[in-house]
Amino acid sequence: MIVKLIVRGMLVGLLAGLFAAVFAYTAGEPRIDRAIALEEAAAAASPAGAHSHEAAQPAHSHDEDEAPVSRNGQRLGLFLALGLYGVAVGGLFALVYAAVRGRVGPRSEPVLAVTLAAAAFLAIVLVPFLKYPANPPAVGDPETIDQRTVLYLTAVVVGILAVGAGTAAYRYASRSEPWLRWLAGGASLLVPVAAAWILLPEIDEVPPGFPADLLWDFRIASLGTQAVFWLGVGALFAFAARRRSPV
């Protein structure tokens, strides 16, 4: 049974990943193209960049200056990457679903699937995004990428622990009044998130003059891509759970 559940989760994740890729291609790629154009224009306008380019020009051809992967290749890779990401995450989602089914959360399997997907979006996407939102090309110092990666993963861990703490507190107060259960769960969720927000260092590497509308449009598109993915996972898994044969 568990193998079938994992396979079902992988298929659901694949479909959700492709849905998210369509959204990212439609909403995110135009912003990436605009950010790349700004980055290239800034590099061309830089005296140091122009000098180095002229000095290096005799040593190699124009074709060698081009990116290893073309923009069309990157767009195709977007669908491949999100599809593979969906397969992996869908399999993990199925394992977590099997572990909590009948133990934590709603009794209804479709409702449990949607609730679990919403909790995953909150823990893995929304909490880290609030502290460290995504940035388009031309934003970010390459020398700090390791630091930024560690901080982002730390925010993800905080999000997972916060959701776990909120769930545990809600269950612990299960015999209390509904408002007290929600208060206990909400406080247990928000306290570690607020502490992480205060204690984790800020990262602000947006260059002066970078268009604010482009920055936030890209960030909203990035968040929307993840929202589409987890909405797809929850809805498709709920549909699969509803049609699943009894065991």
Rank of each mutant, 00 (worst) to 15 (best):
Tyr25Asn: 15
His62Cys: 03
Glu177Cys: 08
Leu38Ala: 01
Trp179Met: 09
Asp204Gly: 13
Glu66Thr: 14
Gln226Ala: 14
Phe121Asp: 04
Phe79Cys: 14
Met1Arg: 14
Arg75Ala: 12
Phe93Leu: 11
Tyr172Ser: 15
Phe121Pro: 00
Ala81Cys: 11
Ala50Asp: 13
Gly90Glu: 10
Val228Met: 14
Ala187Asn: 04
Val233Leu: 12
Ala88Gly: 14
Gly86Lys: 10
Arg242Val: 00
Tyr132Pro: 02
Ser61Cys: 10
Ile6Ser: 04
Ser176Lys: 01
Ile32Ser: 06
Leu112His: 00
Thr167Glu: 04
Ala138Asn: 08
Glu66Ile: 13
Pro110Asp: 03
Leu82Gly: 10
Leu199Ala: 06
Thr225Val: 12
Leu122Val: 09
Arg101Gly: 04
Gln147Cys: 09
Ala16His: 05
Met10Val: 04
Arg181Asp: 04
Tyr97Cys: 02
Leu78Tyr: 11
Ala21Ile: 15
Leu15Gln: 11
Gly90Gln: 12
Leu84Tyr: 12
Glu64Ala: 07
Gly17Thr: 15
Trp179Gly: 13
Leu231Trp: 12
Pro201Ser: 00
Gly49Glu: 00
Arg243Gln: 11
Pro136Cys: 15
Leu200Glu: 03
Val158Met: 02
Thr144Asp: 15
Tyr172Lys: 14
Leu112Gln: 07
Ala50Tyr: 05
His51Ile: 01
Leu236Tyr: 14
Ala162Ile: 06
Leu15His: 14
Arg175Thr: 13
Val158Phe: 03
Glu202Asn: 09
Tyr85Asn: 08
Pro142Asn: 11
Ala235Phe: 10
Trp182Pro: 06
His51Met: 01
Ala42Glu: 00
Phe129Gly: 02
Gly164Lys: 05
Pro178Ile: 03
Pro110Gly: 02
Ala59Pro: 01
Ala155Glu: 04
Gly140Ala: 14
Ala138Thr: 05
Pro110Tyr: 04
Ala212Arg: 12
